[in-house]
């Protein structure tokens, strides 16, 4: 009696499995062809010395040893870190400050300012590069002309795009991305519990104390995510210096970024194995950053889940609270 029914169930399960695999197939095919296969290829490539089309030899970790012993790699890494720090330490505080300004209750024209500040993101980075290339020219650039007008001692031949290329890049990306990050912060600020703000006001906490104890803890998960995005984005910076420096690395390689160096070795010199090794080093650095962000925000999230419900009694929360043993929940 049981046997037929059991086999029917088995057949049913099998056909369901088949259907599932069939439905998954297009996605899996795309992932395998466009993600996994190239990834595997990149692993193999990083262990090879390539020389023109169709010629390669396995060299083990020689490419990685070469990268670590390459002064240009270290210079590119240093440049990229400078740019990243510039982006994170200058851009994000400004973005947060702007978000807090825009978050003031009763501000008129909020959506107008939001649009104005956000709109540079909609301009492609290549155009931003071209705009700043013109703006930052010696003699003819608007920025030098303006500064010379305002400061009589300003050198109209100030070479933004030569010795100060990193500053120029930080400025350009500041213009482009501050509004973008501001929108993230603006969204995060919505999650700052208003009762906590008010409690702090009643407790007599100063602006700074309210920022440190109320606003900051609440926006840390988003904040650390924005920092991670900024770090990843900054680490991958390529188009901007490529445009600003017309495809070169700038005076004394001052504008050489790590992805720029990857391009130089892989696509200008044709050393694909070396470029792959460089790519893996970048991936490793970013992986460490991402891991740090996860740990950080997990910690912040744990601390945050306390701060309980906001506004209006949310029935769903009651069981959640009830579930917590009164002894504590490590």
């Amino acid at each position: 009696m049981m046997a037929p029914s059991a086999s029917r169930t088995a057949a049913h399960t099998a056909s369901r499995d088949r259907a599932a695999w069939l439905l998954l197939a297009p996605f899996l095919a795309l992932v395998v062809v466009f993600t996994l296969w190239p990834l595997a290829g990149a692993v193999l490539l990083a262990g090879q010395q390539t020389f023109g089309p169709g010629t390669s030899r396995f060299v083990g970790l020689a490419n990685f040893r070469g990268v670590l012993a390459d002064p240009l790699f270290w210079q590119a890494l240093q440049n990229t870190i400078v740019f990243t720090l510039g982006s994170v330490l200058i851009q994000l505080p400004i973005a947060l400050a702007l978000a807090m300004l825009l978050n003031q209750p009763g501000l008129k024209g909020r959506s107008f300012f939001r649009l104005v500040l956000f709109s540079p993101v909609m301009v492609g980075v290549v155009y931003v590069g071209m705009i700043f290339f013109v703006l930052l020219q010696k003699r003819t650039g608007l920025i030098n002309q303006l500064l010379a007008m305002l400061l009589p001692s300003w050198d109209i031949n100030f070479a933004w795009l030569e010795h100060w290329i990193m500053l120029a890049m930080i400025l350009a990306s500041l213009w482009q991305y501050t509004g973008f990050n501001m929108v993230y912060f603006l969204a995060a600020l919505q999650s700052v519990p208003s009762e906590l703000q008010e409690a702090a006001r009643i407790d007599g906490a100063s602006w700074w104390k309210r920022f440190r104890h109320v606003t900051l803890p609440a926006i840390i998960p988003v904040g650390s995510f924005v920092v991670l995005l900024s770090i990843i984005g900054s680490f991958q910076i390529f188009e901007l210096p490529f445009i600003l420096l017309q495809g070169n690395a700038g005076v004394d390689n001052k504008g050489l970024t790590i992805v720029g160096y990857l391009y130089q070795t892989g696509f200008q010199s044709g050393d694909l194995g070396y470029a792959s090794a460089l790519g893996w080093v970048i991936a490793l650095v970013l992986g460490v950053c991402a891991l740090a962000q996860r740990v950080l925000s997990a910690r912040a999230e744990a601390a945050r889940s306390t701060s309980a419900p906001r506004k209006a009694p949310a029935p769903a929360l009651a069981p959640a609270l009830a579930r917590q043993p009164s002894g504590g929940n490590p």
Binding site: F51, G52, P53, G54, T55, G270
Partner: peptide, 11 residues
């Protein structure tokens, strides 16, 4: 630089 890299017979 890239098109002519490698052995002659592989160009």
């Amino acid at each position: 630089a890239r098109a002519f890299a490698g052995p002659i017979e592989a160009v």
